[in-house]
Design a binder for these strands. Structure first.
Length: 160
DNA sequence: GCCAACGTTGGC
DNA sequence: GCCAACGTTGGC
């Protein structure tokens, strides 16, 4: 029997790293470093190669879903946790027991037009989405198959 | 800039 | 184990 397919959503502040930055990266691939939340880390550890990721721009005007990436390498230790010069340095993380992981993701495509947070909120079928939950701050989160389908349909219809 | 909603830390 | 203080996220 086939493994269950999972879908994901990852947030990034476009000022720091946008989907265009991803598209311009070598091999259109980057390691998703700097995650310092256990729940988000655990979701990254559950990611499998080939799984699809919605790319979300947080702290943007407006905040929006901008496209799709895919997992190309499963979780491995985040090098920035051991680098005292790095803002994400974690002095409590031991080299033989790393706390924090990254995954590698690759650019797939941008949507024809961004799907704003407000537009997503208007969709009755997305009311249960983690992204839309009041107070939700999770930077890596699962997306249900139904939500994924709905968002892709929305992206197809929405040209800005 | 404001502030609600978190998650983490550390004293007790 | 409780919880106040603190730092961060992220929409507005």
């Amino acid at each position: 029997m086939a493994e269950k397919q999972h879908y994901w959503l990852m947030k990034s502040e476009p000022n720091a790293f946008s989907i265009d930055d991803l598209a311009r990266s070598p091999k259109q691939t980057t390691s998703w470093d700097g995650v310092r939340n256990y729940q988000a880390r655990n979701f990254m550890r559950a990611m499998k190669a080939g799984e699809q990721v919605l790319f979300y721009h947080s702290n943007a005007q407006p905040p929006c879903l901008v496209g799709i990436a895919e997992v190309v390498k499963t979780a491995y230790p985040d090098a920035t946790q051991f680098d005292p010069q790095d803002v994400h340095y974690d002095p409590g993380s031991l080299p033989d027991q790393p706390r924090w992981d990254v995954v590698d993701i690759r650019f797939v495509r941008k949507f024809a037009a961004p799907l704003s947070l407000n537009l997503l909120k208007e969709q009755s079928s997305l009311q249960g989405m983690e992204l839309l939950r009041k107070g939700s701050r999770l930077s890596v989160q699962p997306v249900s198959a139904a939500e994924w389908k709905e968002i892709l349909q929305l992206a197809r219809r929405h040209k800005g």
